[in-house]
Simulated scan of single mutants.
Amino acid sequence: MQARSFLILLFLSATFFSAHAGGKVTTGAERIEQYLPLLQGKRVGMVVNHTSIVGMEQTHLLDTLLKLNVQIVKVFAPEHGFRGNADAGETVKDGKDSRTGTPIVSLYGNNKKPTAAQLKDVDVVLFDIQDVGARFYTYISTMYYMMEACAENKKEMIVLDRPNPCDYVDGPILKPGYKSFVGMLPIPVLHGCTIGELAQMINGEGWIANKKNACSLKVISMTGWKHGEPYSLPIKPSPNLPNDQSIRLYASLCPFEATRVSVGRGTTFPFQVLGAPNKKYGSFAFTPRSLPGFDKNPMHKGIACYGEDLRNTTDVNGFTLRYFLRFYRLSGEGAAFFSRPRWFDLLMGTDSVRKAILKGESEETIRNSWQKELQVYREMREKYLLY
């Protein structure tokens, strides 16, 4: 059995090396020879989803490790579920993987942080999920809670690194009092880190709740990528981020979810359009529908929305408020434009942005307000960069 596993490993390693030799990125998950020895003889829990794929044939990491006789005792599933098909905010239930029979424990809903009982039969946790670089993308909140649980329960954690496809440092820093599942850490809207670098930052800056306990952490780095290089995701990371353009615009359009303006949920181009049921917002029209695989119950379902088509926009690099300010002014509603003001503040990590908008301040003035803190963050971030 050991010989068979060794042969499989040699085959996988050769496949990955060939891919990298052709100029492609080799993710941490694909560097199996680096972390397989850390898993052998141990009971393994995995925090994975549909993006946790390896090799040219896009095999799921769970299936790959089971073939290598790794003892996987359970999978911890984040928002959108293990197979990535649950809507944003939809409850993810415990169960079993239909393909392998592996038990699945949901880390979304009421149980966002693993309990001691859920980790009792686990020796090491393997984390491998594709992030998109935005603070309010909840996979990094799941990673934070898992690191905290591992620290508290004396469990090892291995993070398999992947590139950041929106690799910018931009936006306001989250302030105390605005911590939530869409913002767990004092980092900017676009944090400019890979998940491995962010995990090291969480440990190094003492952000674990009980600061006396750091997480026993190992990051398996990738090869073939460095900061500033573009990266196109092979699999959409969540139902409403279907392509590179949606990922590029995601951070700038997500604040609209605290308003009555649609970001295109219920279309095949979410986070690439903006609109509401009033022609004052623009001439471009779309009608949200119930779309399995995207959003089954979108805002303004069945109602024509008018606004802007951003599918061919190429000048957004980082985080911008230009679209939000434009729609805010067109609305003429003042404070009422923020249908969920607290949600907007949680997404921004501060109430200062909303208050500045209400005062009529320009984007330049608002952006200048966070530059000093952003520079402090950039200098701190340098300590944890791997690429």
Rank of each mutant, 00 (worst) to 15 (best):
T102P: 05
A151Y: 01
G41D: 06
Y35Q: 07
K279D: 14
M222C: 09
K226G: 11
G318W: 07
Q58W: 03
F284S: 12
Q272V: 08
K74M: 08
M147V: 07
A134W: 04
S362M: 11
A285D: 09
V261I: 13
P176Q: 04
K120C: 01
G183S: 03
T350W: 01
K372A: 15
S362H: 04
M147Y: 02
Q58Y: 06
L241S: 10
L249W: 05
P188W: 06
H191W: 06
G318L: 11
L174T: 08
I129C: 10
G81L: 02
C215W: 00
T91N: 01
V353N: 03
K226Y: 12
D167N: 15
R248M: 15
I129V: 14
I235T: 11
H300D: 10
I357F: 12
V70Q: 00
V159M: 08
V316G: 12
R31Q: 13
G55E: 05
I158A: 00
W207G: 03
T26A: 10
L253P: 10
S18A: 13
N278F: 04
Y250Q: 13
I220R: 01
R311S: 15
G204T: 04
G89E: 07
N368Y: 06
L12M: 14
D87W: 00
I195N: 12
K120Q: 02
I8Y: 11
A21M: 12
S352W: 03
S262R: 10
Y281S: 09
I173L: 07
F82I: 02
F256T: 05
L185N: 00
Q200M: 15
T102H: 09
N210D: 15
L126K: 01
L385N: 05
T320S: 15
T223I: 05
A356Y: 10
K236S: 13
F284E: 09
A29S: 12
L346H: 09
T27Y: 07
A149K: 04
A258W: 01
L347T: 08
G282H: 03
R99D: 11
E364W: 04
N203S: 09
A77Y: 00
G101C: 10
G101P: 05
C305K: 12
L198Q: 06
E156S: 10
G266I: 05
F269R: 14
Q200L: 09
G204A: 05
V169R: 02
A88H: 12
P78D: 04
I8L: 15
I53Y: 00
K112R: 15
G133V: 05
N240S: 14
T223P: 05
A276T: 15
M348A: 02
G22C: 09
L217Q: 03
L119Q: 06
V25Q: 11
Y178T: 03
A116T: 03
V219R: 06
V159G: 06
T115F: 13
D94T: 01
I235G: 05
M46Y: 03
G293E: 06
Y281F: 15
F127A: 13
A29V: 04
G192M: 12
